[in-house]
Design a binder for these strands. Sequence first.
DNA 1: CCGACCCGTTTTTTT
DNA 2: AACGGGTCGG
Length: 786
Amino acid sequence: MGNYLNELNEQQREAVIHKEGPIMIVAGAGSGKTKVLTTRIAHLMSQHKIDAFNILALTFTNKAAAEMKERVEKILGNSEARNLYIGTFHSVFARMLRAEGPKIGYPNNFTIYDTDDSRSVLKTVINEMNLDDKHYKPSVVHNRISQAKNALVGPAEYQNDYYIQQEDMRSNRPLIGQIYQSYAARCFKNGAMDYDDLLFKMYELLRDFPEVLYKYQHKFKYIMIDEYQDTNAVQYQIIKLLAAVHENIAVVGDDAQSIYSFRGATIENILQFQKDYDDVKVVKLEQNYRSTQSILNVANEVIKNNKGQIPKDLWTENHEGEKIRLVRTMTDNDEGKFVADTIQEQKLRNHFYNRDFAILYRTNAQSRSFEESLRRMGIPYRIYGGVSFYQRKEIKDVLAYLRVIVNTRDEEALKRIINYPVRGIGKTSIEKAVIFANEHNISMWEVLTKAGEFGFKAGALEAISNFVIMIKYFQSMLSSKNAYDVAVQVGKHTNIVKDLFNDKTTEGLARYENIQELFNSIKEWTESPSNDDGELGDKTLGSYLQQITLLTDADDDKENSDVVKLMTIHAAKGLEFACVFVGGIEETLFPSAMSINTREELEEERRLFYVAVTRAKKNLWLTYSNTRYRFGQLVQNEPSRFIEEMPEQYIDRSFAGGGARNQGYNDFGGTSAFDRMSGGSGGWKSNSARVAEKYGPPPTKKETKPAYMPVAPAAPKVVEHQPSADFSASDTTGLQVGQKVEHQKFGFGEVLKMEGSAHNPIATVKFHLNGEKKIMLNYAKLRIVD
DNA sequence: CCGACCCGTTTTTTT
DNA sequence: AACGGGTCGG
């Protein structure tokens, strides 16, 4: 400790040591923004003896929060940092609402609804109003309500706002306001908040309860906000309230990286900041420490096409580096192969590790072709985002039990588990219970506890009674047992675990493993150290459930695991990688077809492009494909307009078509030299010989070809397998090691090993075609030979 | 009350 | 292409 200031440049230091009053740090990509915030926190604590309890730092991802905490701890060299209030907006407010919830009529153990829960409640409400959920689609209505909440518009204001009503009329959904009202009432009745409520209710709490406002205003003497350009109206108002007393607020942001306007974020908040406080200190961080000059120049040049950026003069002392490689392929699969091939090649040639690579894309659906190619090459990877672990069915089932135990008002969870596993409470009984609950304005749970008074049939009555007794039994454990012990009891007592264990299908096995993983993670959480602040240090089930809903699977990453990372560009913000591939640089995909209608939308896409490019430290590949599958249909896309906006001198287009050597560039990979080295795929492509002719022999170490040249495919002796006349993939549920199988392309073989998950059943098969080959594949395409 | 089958939707991005 | 919801038959 002590010399941390020496690591900073002049501007960074200025921002760190600025003690009192508001400060706005306008910073470019890779300029050490987060470093400044963390150092500032450490500096306040060590030099100015500010107590950790009095510092609030808000971020947009759990990962950023965890990193910050870790780094502060490292600088300070003690464990003081664990008492800091560092977290995402949502998780910090959830904690506060947990403490203050009863003031606004919510239980301390209120449930947090994720997007699926919200839509499910909406569907219920829409049906109860006798509206058509095909027209009033829950997802559409949810977006609308979400936007309203983020703009501080409650149900009443929504229905009274002329322009909002006009919009709803125009889309022929005039009743959204009423749905909003019912939805809010239902969530409240269920003792539940959705993601947006965590912000919206926090604002109302501070607005309506002066004593609460007073408490937190005085508690938080210093406030830091990361990624300030991504704040929306509610967040802005909350920050303003919290900071009003001390005005020791430091915000860091880059207007060029504002990419969350779809959830209400507005860079207006940056411009407004200087108007809201007197004497704002503004610091600009313009030196980039991350990327090569080529990368930075490309990013800067493209972003210049946006109007109204805050002028910044970004520069770097880094080397110019290699040119940005622009790569065109014929199909999305070829794109995947190119990337996997190039990763393999770069690893060997330039001694990169898997963890040095990231593959970024605009939409989650694009991950598939990359996954497949990586798997074939045997390159380990991890996908961030997409369907989170906690959204899996079996996980949600167990969590639903836990939710009901903690908050019996949670009707969504109750309905999910009341007859799972089957216990004789059928559809009719459930409907009855819901109707009774609505009629008597009590919770569904209360109906169940007093089932005798509501005239259920004898059989149903007994089933309900047993169910109620069981849940009450679980509840009796809450005070004496921790989250893990309760969860284990639930698993045992409900037979969920046993049922899954007995399910020997691949899916059942995977589900069983997932449940075990859930239990392990609960245990881990239960045993992790808590902080000294009583109000948030608890290890109860209620506390567990609240934080779990706010977790993304990007958060619990095994930081050091040596894998290639795949994620959307949105998810990549704030991260950096030595080598970056950005896929699908095509019109209708990037920029998205949804976002080309207004200048604002298009500029956000361009900022997204800026974010993607500036993730790279050393090497950057931009790939696009002539054709790709979308909704199961082959579509053709033009190259993205962003490609033309890049300055020529930093671009290597030698694999982007146009030149003679690129004609018919349609088969990368599958048969590269590295395939054989890695025991991967290869050898069956009929046209690889042709391609090899065009590109010459595979590179050797002696060659002085630039490092970025793709690996030319070898010219294998190809024998095409002729599938049996009646070939069709069989039901492979019973597939076993040793089984003889046929594959349409690879021919006959024998199963060596089986692994993977239900979604990705992987078998290693030894095929006999073209000599023995071991291939890992998703075995859905196999025929069992008897 | 469960499975098999059919049909419609999905893909912009996230807490 | 793949998943979820709905329907129908056993």
